[in-house]
Design a protein around this nucleic acid. Structure first.
Lengths: 194, 194, 194, 194
DNA sequence: TATGAATGAGGGTTCATTCAT
DNA sequence: GATGAATGAACCCTCATTCAT
């Protein structure tokens, strides 16, 4: 099919531009990066980007789209018959482990823009955040009674988000071990108090 | 004292500009707001801002400065002989309660910029984040053994930050009750599992 | 050749801008002229200038470049088997004759900037001044012994520069005739003294 | 006399500001130096300068005024019964010798502005240039017949101006010895040619 | 579809000058 | 006279976007 071929080519170019945008945004930030920068990194002319993306903001939406695919892969590994502790450790470690190198910087930039860009926030919620929360909730569902499930989902997701945010704000701060966090959460504060 | 008077006036004008900057940044965001916007909101000429702040970024530093003062007030309330549950509830509720109206929007903007502006992040850590964490840690110190204190401080601070971040990303999401969170954390996941 | 065509067009636009810059600078001076002025005179948008010249100072460098081309043409006429007097007259008259109308005003502006702009001075020396001195020195070489050649080159070049400067400072002052200057220099002061 | 005292004080302050202006202009150039810079160097408030000088350009006029005084001193040394060669050497050496350190830089800046500022040029001609030329002409008058006097005055003054200009354009170029120049001019080119 | 020169609004900032104190 | 904060026009330059080729 000719249309399929041209569509494939178009998709390829689009990916090329998106790769460049990711690299450039991660390195310089969204506002500091110019469309010229992205075009240069992608090896295309500035005007060509507009054949694939409506405007600069659309590049961010495209990046979030791609993040959603990656997130789906990462989350799609349900450890079958794991116990609660292992599930917890996995739920905490997986997102934190993803935060390395360029990914960290990209997420930093995306998050900064999400906070200030309504459309992007919406997209991020729909494509990345909610799916991850759903998956997480499903896993918890088999281990917790309905009553406490929602609360603990909020707790765990907040912890993960909070740790990532701390990491982004203070790159030097050491992250706690997922095992320690899991054990503490399992035992509860009462178990810790003398 | 003459010097005190002129200093007082200078401080007043500075505050006037800062108020305007806060309002404008909260409404339009940092990058979308121009110095002209701030000047207009402050009722001064564009050039006059530079009599009080070195440049646009310095306005953000000034805002963080002010936030640190507010944070100090809010944190300075140690509930004396409170039990662990009450402390926990207070530690969670206080920062969340502060997130209302313009404060939310301002924090949104500041946070977005912190993620991307090294100087501002440093200032924020030194003036706002670390003091709050220290105060929180001090309170926990009298209730937890050394061993688990650090972990629980990380847990609690991460939860608070994470909840705030969720709120900023999804303004419609209902926040969980501090009481529920506290009870869950006290009992631990083991207590929740059937 | 396609590349040749687009290069030709680019060169043409560049010249167009440079023409405008020359006219505007000559009329208003370098500092008093704004990029908007130049753009308006060139019939392009202000931002377009930056497609051809890196910044305002680069316009001056471009002007000096062009002066160097003109200077080369003017200097390239060695009167073959001329005698010393004719050479002298030519060496004095040629640069002075070039100082008419807009050229005068342009040179006034360029010189004013050269005095204060290191890069421009370097460029002017390399592209305009030294080539002219070299050419002048070569001509003298065949008429003077090594010993006095350098001194007389300095004398003649200083006289020309000095006369031009006097002209620029006092536009009304009449220039002496090259013939009179040449005769005086040939005869020497001793010949003039009673 | 009270008026005399206050006038003295006023004159003193004015000198103070002028000293500062000279230092600052010589270091940074006229356009690059701000009134704030001058005020700071003078130890006064920016607004105070306007009590003594009408505007920034008037500072330049003041500087030229002062130069005229200095020039008068330097020129006022008539070598009594000197011979023509000594006169020539003195006429050449004196202005060149004045070009050292800060004076050079100041003259560079003043000259750059003279080229572009009609009022300043007029002032410079009336107060500095013409008096020096007159003095020089008077000296030559006793050694040269009317006929050649004007031509030689132009020659000598142009040489001096030209040498200074060359020096300003190329700070590294060595100046020729006044003695060599004088001897060459005395003997004439015919004397030099083989 | 790809190009890249052209656009022009808008950015942050400077600074000579004024004037109320 | 001295002050220095306030002024606001004007500066150079950037850059997302367009469109003729």
């Amino acid at each position: 099919m000719t249309s399929s071929l041209s569509a494939r080519v178009a998709r390829f170019k689009q990916d090329q531009v998106l790769d460049a945008a990711i690299a450039v945004f991660a390195r310089k930030g969204f506002h500091a990066a110019s469309m010229r920068d992205v075009a240069a990194a992608a090896g295309v002319a500035p005007g060509s980007i507009y054949n694939h993306f409506e405007n600069k903001a659309a590049l961010l939406l495209g990046i979030v789209d791609r993040m959603s695919a990656r997130a789906a892969e990462a989350t799609s590994l349900p450890p079958a018959d794991a116990n609660l502790r292992d599930l917890l450790i996995t739920a905490i470690r997986t997102p934190l482990a993803a935060m390395t190198g360029e990914t960290t910087e990209l997420f930093r930039v995306i998050l900064a823009e999400i906070l200030v860009n309504r459309d992007l926030a919406e997209q991020f919620r729909r494509r990345v955040l909610n799916p991850m929360l759903s998956a997480c909730g499903d896993v918890l569902a088999s281990h917790l009674p309905q009553a406490s499930r929602d609360t603990w989902l909020r707790v765990v997701s907040a912890i993960v988000l909070g740790l990532i945010l701390q990491r982004l704000i203070d790159g030097d701060a050491a992250l706690p071990l997922p095992e320690d966090l899991a054990d503490a959460l399992l035992a509860g504060l009462q178990g810790a108090a003398p």
